[in-house]
Design a protein around this nucleic acid. Structure first.
Length: 486
DNA sequence: ATGTCC
């Protein structure tokens, strides 16, 4: 249990750790959450977020979102903006091993009544068509050389090769193709691990879920309609996955590079080896930034091919084309990434490399980088809850400037995977969930137990906390009816 | 998260 008394309370949902807490802190740390959420957080979050506050170039605050929990180096939920014109660093631990782990949301024009009789069929068919589990490989058979094009072109490659619609690209940041991704900056080993993994879900907390928007959970009907949620009990599909073994290898490769040069070449001393970093404006920092972009693109491509499969399955089962079923994308958003952005800090515009690790960008209305059709409503934010509870669609707000326009990314664990495996039984969980109207399939009973709702924070409370703090606004809450767990 | 330790 965290000692809440050591924190300075800024508001009902914002808590600060001053620079006097630990030697070397350059800025205070701020943690978001209600007092209940703060008390649930493990002490490791305090330690990790204050370590982050010592990194060169960190600007204003080291931030932790309300779903924060222990992670590699940075806490999951960590946000750190580095001033790249003043020695700011780039750190793989601030991005995550799963580069561009993220969420995608697609709507249908079907309602719960229409889908309910087929839910088992839909989930079983999706389970066959979207490979899940550790080491799974996909149906897209391409050479290693062609895969280099995928990591440089992202979702654009997919649409050009028949996986998806041109309009999908408008609903991904930078149109699903991050510029500056150079495959010369990645290892052969990374290519080997990734070239046969396009269109696969992965494992752990990765999943694909069929959900409904109950009438009472459409909080902002006008905003919801603009995002494609137009009727009560509308069925949507949400999924969560990343760059698989490819991104993992990129992160592993560059952590080693950074550990070699960090202190000897750049004189950077850190409190935790897991915070290995290099100046953004160094050959090593720039090489990793480019390699990381390959990871971003791999993940956009992965989710693009999965979307294609989802459309195929719905089309087969409901006997109409995906167009007729209205299967438009709402948005695709990364929650493990670092981006160069312009932010106003103390009245002055600065160029910052914003690390978001288990945190979602949440740009306010009118900001550059939002799809044109959402310009007036703000950037959509997709929050995946646990498979037993619910998920959210939010939008960014102007007061999000305080967190470099960042908010939460998911429920956030309260229980370790080990403890969850001991506490819950996968088989029983599946039966209990089915009795409550959620049909779930998984590649592993132990893996299913790890993802039990009881192992996660209360998603409703943390979304409320994010709204009270002024970092995002809730639009719709979705309820699960079917889930494929990786 | 991850060919869950080359």
């Amino acid at each position: 249990m965290a000692d809440i008394k050591s924190l300075k309370q800024i508001s009902d949902t914002i808590w600060e750790i001053p620079i006097s807490y630990k030697e070397g802190m350059r800025v205070p740390a701020r943690i978001y959450g209600t007092d209940k959420l703060i008390q649930e957080m493990d002490d490791a979050v305090y330690d990790q977020i204050t370590n982050v506050a010592t990194l060169p170039g960190i600007t204003k605050y080291a931030l932790c979102m309300p779903d924060g929990h222990f992670g590699y180096g940075f806490p999951i939920g960590g946000v750190a903006a580095m001033d790249v014109e003043n020695g700011g660093v780039i750190s793989p631990g601030g991005i995550g091993f799963d580069i561009n782990c993220g969420m995608r949301l697609v709507v249908t024009n079907l309602t719960y009544d229409e889908v309910k009789p087929y839910i088992k069929k839909v989930v079983d068919r999706l389970y066959e068509r979207v490979p899940a589990g550790v080491g799974s490989t996909g149906f897209v058979k391409i050479s290693r050389n062609e895969f280099r094009k995928v990591v440089e072109q992202g979702a654009r490659w997919c649409v050009d090769n028949g996986y998806g619609w041109e309009e999908d690209l408008e609903l991904i940041e930078e149109n699903g193709c991050i510029a500056g991704a150079d495959s010369a900056k990645i290892s052969e080993k990374a290519i080997d691990r990734g070239f046969n993994q396009i269109g696969t879900l992965g494992s752990g907390n990765h999943y694909l879920e069929i959900q409904i928007a109950k009438k009472e959970n459409i909080f902002e009907p006008e905003l919801a309609a603009k995002l494609g949620i137009t009727q009560p009990d509308q069925v949507v599909v949400m999924f969560h996955c990343g760059s698989r073994g490819f991104g993992h290898q990129v992160a592993t490769d560059y952590l080693q590079v950074f550990l070699k040069v960090m202190e000897s070449k750049y004189g950077i001393k850190i409190l935790d080896r897991e915070l290995a970093c290099a100046p953004f404006d160094s050959p090593e920092g720039q090489a990793y930034f480019s390699a990381m972009k390959c990871g971003l693109n791999m993940s956009f491509a992965n989710r693009q091919v999965i979307l294609h499969r989802i459309r195929e399955v719905f089309s087969e089962i409901f006997g109409r084309s995906a167009e007729d079923l209205g299967m438009h994308m709402v948005y695709d958003v990364a929650h493990n990434t670092a981006k160069l952005e312009r932010h106003i800090v103390d009245g002055k515009e600065r160029s910052l490399l914003v690390h978001r690790k288990g945190a979602t960008r949440a740009f306010a209305p009118e900001m550059t980088g939002i799809p044109a059709r959402y310009e007036n409503i703000g950037q959509p934010v997709i929050i995946g809850g646990s498979m037993e509870t619910g998920s959210y669609l939010l939008v960014g707000v102007p007061s999000g400037a305080q967190s470099f326009f960042s908010t939460a990314h998911g429920s956030g664990r309260t229980m370790s995977r080990t403890k969850a495996r001991k506490t819950f039984r996968g088989e029983k969980l599946q039966k209990d969930m089915q009795a409550r109207g959620i049909y779930v399939r998984s590649t592993s009973w132990a893996g299913l137990a790890e993802e039990a709702g009881g192992a996660y924070k209360d998603v409703d409370e943390l979304i409320e906390a994010a709204e009270l703090a002024g970092i995002s606004k809730k639009v719709v809450r979705f309820t699960p009816i079917g889930n494929i767990k990786g």
